[in-house]
Structure formats: C-alpha cells, structure tokens
Write a protein that binds this DNA or RNA. Structure first.
Length: 324
DNA sequence: GCGCTAAGTTGTCCTTCGAG
DNA sequence: CTCGAAGGACAACTTAGCGC
C-alpha cells in the first residue's frame, strides 16, 4: 500500500519538474506571464539581482547559491520585510534556482537553515488556548428541532442529522458523506464508511438508541430515510429531493454552518470544530487518553489534541491547582 | 443558487536530535 | 540503543469566492 502511495508521489514530482522547465524557460527569457504570487517574489528578487549588475542567465553558473540566498535575505531584512515575506521569498527563489538547474543540496544547506530559524519562528502559529464552544449548545438546539421536524427545510434537516452523527462518533464530514447506513434487528444502526486519512481503513460504527432520543443519531437517521423515501438502498444515503442528486460537499458544509449559526454559535467556526468540541467534552468528563484515542480514532492523539483540540482544559487544570 | 477552483487549514508520515 | 519530541513535507479536508 505504502509503496503504491510513494510511487504516486514520485509521479507528482515528475510532473512538477516538467512544470519547472517551463518556468525556467519563461523566467530566463524574461517573459511575462500571469502574475502569480511566486512571480511577484521573483520580481522582487530580480530587482535585487539587477542592482548587483548581473543578468538572470548567470544564475545557472552560480558557484554558491546558499551564500547568494543569505545575502538576499540580508537585503530583505534591510528593507524591513516581514518574516512571512522572507520565508516565501526563500521558497520562491529556491524554486527559481532549482529551475535553473542548481542542485538542491547546494541551495538548502545547514547555514541557510540556521539563518532562517529565527525568521521561521516568528511566523509559526502559536498553540492557542482559545476556548471552544460547548457541544451542549448544539445538542440542545438539535433537541429543540426534533419537535418540529415537519417545518425543517431539507438543508436544516441534513445539517441536524450530520451534527448529531458527528457529535457522537467524531467522523469527519466527508467520511459521513460517503457513508452508508443500515438498521439492525435490535434497533441499532450501523454506519459504514471508509477513512482516507489515518489508517486508510474502513470503519463500522454502531449506534444504539440513547436515552435522550431527540439528539440520538439513530432517531435522526431513521427520520431522514423516511423523508427521502428510501426503500432498501435504492438511493444514496444523502439523496436530496430538491436537486434529485446526492448532497455535495459544499452543500453539506453550508447546511451545517447554517444550523450552527441558528444554534447561536458565534464567529462561524469550522465544521471540524464539532469534532473538537466533542473531544473536548470527552476530556473534561475525565475519560482516559486511551478511551479518547479510540473514540476519536486518532493514532497520534497527544500532539494533535494539543494542537487542535482539548482547548478548554488548561483553564480547568489551573482552576483545580488553585484550590488549596 | 449552483458548481467549480484555488487558497487555507488540519492531520499523518517520516526523519532527526538529544536524553537516559 | 530506545524513546519521545519536534519539524518539514505532503496529502486530505474545508471554505471562500467567482462565473454562470
């Protein structure tokens, strides 16, 4: 499996080099194409290069591209460039140098890495301690909607069903979207989906009816199937009557956002935030890391949760420590 | 409004480094 | 030597925005 993936990546690289050949030709001949960001950077570089009184063609014969790059960085710092700009410049010029036929080893050496270290550090995204909203807000809203199913639009219905599923099994949106379900004899439901991230395996998740029926995925799923009048797998699960097609990713994403907005969640958070909120709640309930790994199906949860999930915990830890 | 594309974000894999 | 942490590269996922 892995080998196949790798050879795929290599193909990508081959494609890139051929694109680079074109880049090389257009740059070295000085042609102007559409302005991409990368070319703007190269324009900035050309300004610097012209000041040194050389022709762009001479890049090919550079003895020590690394030193050249460092000089250029100094030049940018003198001009009070932002850190982000410098990093992007280096990336663009590396591409340019490579296109001109210089070897990567010569360009990207240890010294350059050291020089860039401080600059890179400045643009890193900090690990934020922003508090995420509580998943309870969403669940309460869905509970309310369950009483007035008839009045919901198709989009609202879809959004509620998705949120219910995502809150309880932390699948990603697309994973739910390509899933299929079936009802078992004991009234539990199986969701079959394939995960492309992570282990690249199929997942089968079983929902059993919860005490609180109104927020239970089983309830929403059965109502959804009623609504689209599906008999025995004759249609895809997320079939929309309105368009007579399966729901698209974009439409699903928009519906979920819409429901979240109606539930009174501010700042328009992303769809994955549902996953995050759910995992955060699991942590605050005191489940072990192992249980949460299994629940979220992260293979490497410590870093991931630190980066993206479990956002409220630090406050709680501090509060507990402060108790004497 | 829909569908598409490009840009932005998130997650995993792989490598390197340093401590024990 | 082994383990965990950190960082880079890249793939997968999500969203914004545009043209129709």
């Amino acid at each position: 499996m892995q080998r196949i993936v790798r050879s795929g990546r290599q193909n990508e690289k081959e494609k890139k080099t051929s694109a680079l050949d074109q880049l090389q030709i257009s740059i070295l001949e000085g042609k102007k194409e559409k302005k991409s960001i990368k070319q703007q950077r190269i324009g900035q570089f050309k300004e610097y290069w012209d000041k040194t009184g050389r022709d762009l063609i001479e890049i090919k014969d550079l003895k020590d591209p690394e030193v050249e790059m460092i000089n250029y960085i100094d030049f940018l710092i003198e001009q009070n460039s932002t850190s982000a700009n410098i990093v992007e410049n280096v990336s663009a010029i590396t591409t340019l140098f490579k296109a001109a036929g210089l070897s990567e080893q010569k360009i990207n050496g240890k010294v350059l890495k050291q020089v860039l270290k401080r600059t890179r550090a400045k643009i890193k995204q900090p690990i934020k301690e922003s508090t995420s909203y509580s998943i309870n807000t969403l669940l309460k809203f869905i509970e309310l909607q369950a009483d007035k199913l008839q009045t919901l639009t198709e989009a609202q219905f879809l959004g509620c069903t998705f949120i219910s599923i995502m809150a309880f099994c932390t699948l990603r949106m697309v994973e739910v979207l390509r899933a299929d379900v079936q009802q078992n004899e004991d009234n539990s439901w199986n969701i079959n989906t394939s995960m492309w991230k992570g282990d690249d395996t199929d997942a089968e998740i079983t929902f059993r009816p919860l005490v609180n029926q109104s927020i239970c995925p089983t309830f929403w799923l059965s109502k959804w199937l009623n609504r689209i009048e599906r008999q025995q797998l004759d249609k895809p699960l997320w079939w929309l009557k309105r368009t007579n097609k399966p729901a698209t990713e974009e439409f699903t994403s928009k519906s979920i956002h819409h429901v979240m907005e109606q539930a009174g969640i501010e700042n328009n958070p992303t769809v994955t935030s549902i996953r995050a909120a759910s995992i955060t709640k699991a942590f605050s309930l005191g489940f072990t890391k192992i249980a949460i790994d299994r629940f979220s199906r992260h293979s490497d949860s410590s870093m991931v949760t630190l980066k993206s999930y479990d956002k409220n915990n630090n406050d709680e830890v501090r509060r507990e420590i402060s108790k004497l």
